[in-house]
């Protein structure tokens, strides 16, 4: 079993020591970073510090040195973002800090994504994402999209103010089976139900799975509107999308 001292990067060690309480999560992260190269740890550390320029630079260097894009994504970017997610979930950091780290992840993913897309690797699934009709807030949705792409999904981003018809068209066009709907306003949340209804009316409800999220959304509300799952944050969205994608294929 790996030890904390096996992690060479001091920033990562401190992050694990100071911000992760759950023994299972400590063990998982120690294992993950202990097996990651010093270079990958450095990328993760820069991401945790929200240093997008350094992440951009280190990612380019690593790719130039012949390191696999997948390794950089998994052991550097996603591993770093995993700690960010834990810190956010446990209230150590808030949305502004997450956004700064996400900007750093984006800087790295800008180099990784084209390589992965060209590699022809089988995606985990296709997810249609959109903020519901009447709502123009997209921070949470965008964080979910970034993590979903990191999780191997093809994500079609319909943006904000998305009507039920736009969700229907996107599902048909991209042959997608998982739909993610986001809302920040309690006044627009009911539009989630309208989208689910539109799929029922079109006779497509059984062919897709809906996941919903957003600050005021609750698991109870998700059930009320007929969604198949609720994701509290971006990390939960990836887990949920994975589960729903498997379920809908079965």
């Amino acid at each position: 079993m790996a030890q904390l001292s096996d992690i060479t990067n001091a920033v990562i060690r401190t992050e694990i020591e100071e911000f992760i309480d759950d023994p299972a999560e400590i063990e998982r992260n120690v294992e993950l970073f202990a097996k990651a190269s010093a270079q990958m740890q450095e990328i993760a550390a820069a991401l945790l510090e929200g240093d997008n320029d350094t992440v951009d630079q280190l990612t380019r260097i690593a790719l130039d040195e012949g390191i696999e894009a997948l390794e950089i994504m998994d052991d550097g970017l996603i591993a770093g973002m995993g700690i960010v997610g834990i810190k956010f979930r446990d209230g150590f950091i808030f949305v502004p800090e997450v956004l700064v780290c996400a900007r750093a992840m984006k800087a790295g993913m800008a180099h990784i994504e084209p390589i992965l897309a060209a590699s022809g690797a089988e995606p985990a699934g296709t997810v249609i994402m959109g903020t519901v009709k009447g709502d123009l807030h997209d921070i949470g949705k965008n964080l979910c999209i970034m993590m979903l792409r990191g999780g191997g999904f093809i994500v079609i981003d319909l943006g904000v103010d998305t009507s039920p018809e736009e969700f229907l068209e996107a599902v048909a066009e991209h042959d997608a089976h998982v739909i993610g709907m986001s809302a920040l306003l309690t006044t627009t949340m009911p539009n989630m139900a309208k989208t689910v209804e539109a799929f029922k009316d079109a006779g497509l409800r059984e062919k897709v799975r809906f996941m919903v999220g957003g600050a005021p959304v609750t698991p109870e509300f998700a059930e009320d509107v007929g969604a198949d799952g609720y994701g509290k944050d971006a990390m939960a969205a990836v887990e949920l999308a994975t589960k729903l994608a498997i379920e809908v294929r079965a």
Partner: peptide
């Protein structure tokens, strides 16, 4: 813009 604003509180 909300994203610019919130990130700006740090950067």
């Amino acid at each position: 813009g909300i994203e610019n604003w919130l990130m700006g509180t740090i950067t």
